[in-house]
Write a protein that binds this DNA or RNA. Structure first.
Lengths: 201, 201
DNA sequence: TTTTATACCTACCAAGTGGTAAGGGTTGTG
DNA sequence: CACAACCCTTACCACTTGGTAGGTATAAAA
C-alpha cells in the first residue's frame, strides 16, 4: 500500500505548490508536511534536505517542460512554428499546473547559490532554456542577431507568458477574479499572437 | 549630521536590494542592517516592522514608476506612443535600478496577505498598474477587447520587460556575463519593438 | 537649565527554522 | 522465524527570525 513512487509524487505536488506560492525561503517543511498530514521528518526521509526537495520539484518541472518542448518540435522543421507550438503548449500547461509558472520565474530570478543550486549542481531548467534559446536563434527574423539577442528574446517571451499565470491570484484580488479568469482563457491565443508578432515578419 | 531623510533613503536603497535579491521572506532585518553598519533595531526604529519596511520600499518604487509613466504621457495624446515611451523608459530605468525589476515581479506574484499587504492596505504598485492597463485599453488594436484582454496584454508586456532585468545575475551564470550584458543594452530597443509589434497593426 | 525628540545601542525573548537521533510498525524475503 | 528494508514517528537540538524593553548620547526647543 502507498507505493513509494505515488507517495513521492504526491509530496512533490504539494511541495511545488508551496514553493510556487511562497517562494523557496517562505516555504517551511513543516507547512508542506502539515498539508500532507504527515510530519516534516517524513518529508526529510524521502528528500534528504530542503534544497534537495526544491531540486526535485524543479527536476520534475524540467521534465514536464522538456516533454512539452520536444512534442512541439515534432512534425515540422520550421523553427517559428515549433516555437509557436511550444509557447502555446506552455501557456496551456500553466492552466492545469498553476504552480509551474511561478516556479519557472523563481528559478530564473533566484540568486544562484541561494537555494538548491550548488556549484557542481546543474542549474535548474537549464535543459529547457538552452534549446529554447537555440530555437529562437533558428528563427529567420533573429537568425542574424547572435546569441545574446536570441537569449534576450527567449527570456522576453518566457516572461510574457509566465507572469500572467504566476500572478493570477494576485491579479484576481487587484482587478477581480472574473477579469483575470477571462484573460486566462485567452492565454493560448495571446501566446500564439505574441510569437507571430515577435518572430514573424 | 546624518539628516533623517538622507539616512532613511539610504536604508531604503539597501533594503530594496535585499528584498529584490532574496525576496520578502528571504530578507532578514539583521542582514540589511549589517550591510548598513547598524543594528537591526536601528532599522526597526525608522520603519516600525518588517512589513512596513517592505511597504516603504514598494511605495518608493511606486512613485518612481508613476513619475516614469506620467513623463511618458506628456506631449502626446496617442496611447500607443505613450505606451511605447513608457515601456522604453521602464527598461532603461531597470538598467540603473537593477533591484526594481525583481521588486515589480515580486509584488505581482506574492500571494496577498503574505507580506505587507493587509486588507485595508493599498495593494502595492496598484497606482502604476491601473493607468497602464487603461493605456493598453486606449490603444486602437485592443480598444475593442474589453478590460480583461487589456489587462492580459499589460501584464504580458510587463512580464516581457521585467523578467530580463530581474533574471540578470541568474542568466549571467547560465549563459555568461558578456551575452547577458550585451542583451541588456538591447533592452530599450527590444522594448520599443515589442510595443510596436504587439500594439501596432 | 529643563524638556523633548531623534537616533541608536545592548540585552533579551518567544516562536519557528532545518536537521539529527533513535526507535516502532509494516512489509517482503531468506 | 529472522532479517533487512522501508516508511514514518516522537523527541530533541542549535540556530535564526522578528520584535520588545530599556537605556544612552546628541541636539534642538522651552
Amino acid at each position: 500500500m502507498t507505493p513509494i513512487h505515488q507517495t513521492r509524487n504526491e509530496l512533490l505536488i504539494v511541495a511545488k505548490r508551496h514553493f510556487a506560492a511562497r517562494g523557496y525561503q517562505g516555504t517551511s517543511l513543516a507547512g508542506v508536511a502539515a498539508e500532507l498530514g504527515v510530519t516534516k521528518q517524513a518529508l526529510l526521509h524521502h528528500f534528504k534536505s530542503k534544497p534537495l526537495l526544491y531540486g526535485a520539484c524543479l527536476d520534475q518541472l524540467n521534465q514536464d517542460l522538456l516533454h512539452l518542448l520536444f512534442t512541439a518540435m515534432e512534425g515540422t522543421e520550421e523553427a517559428e512554428l515549433q516555437l509557436e507550438r511550444c509557447l502555446v503548449a506552455l501557456s496551456e500547461f500553466y492552466l492545469q499546473d498553476s504552480a509551474a509558472a511561478a516556479l519557472v520565474i523563481g528559478a530564473l530570478i533566484d540568486a544562484p547559490g541561494q537555494a538548491a543550486l550548488s556549484a557542481a549542481d546543474v542549474l535548474p531548467l537549464q535543459d529547457f532554456l538552452e534549446p529554447l534559446v537555440a530555437l529562437v536563434q533558428a528563427v529567420p527574423r533573429w537568425r542574424g542577431g547572435g546569441f545574446a539577442e536570441a537569449l534576450a528574446v527567449a527570456v522576453e517571451l518566457l516572461g510574457a507568458i509566465c507572469l500572467q499565470s504566476a500572478a493570477r491570484s494576485n491579479l484576481s484580488i487587484r482587478f477581480g477574479e472574473t477579469s483575470v479568469e477571462q484573460g486566462r482563457h485567452l492565454a493560448a491565443r495571446h501566446a500564439r499572437d505574441l510569437v507571430k508578432d515577435r518572430l514573424g515578419g
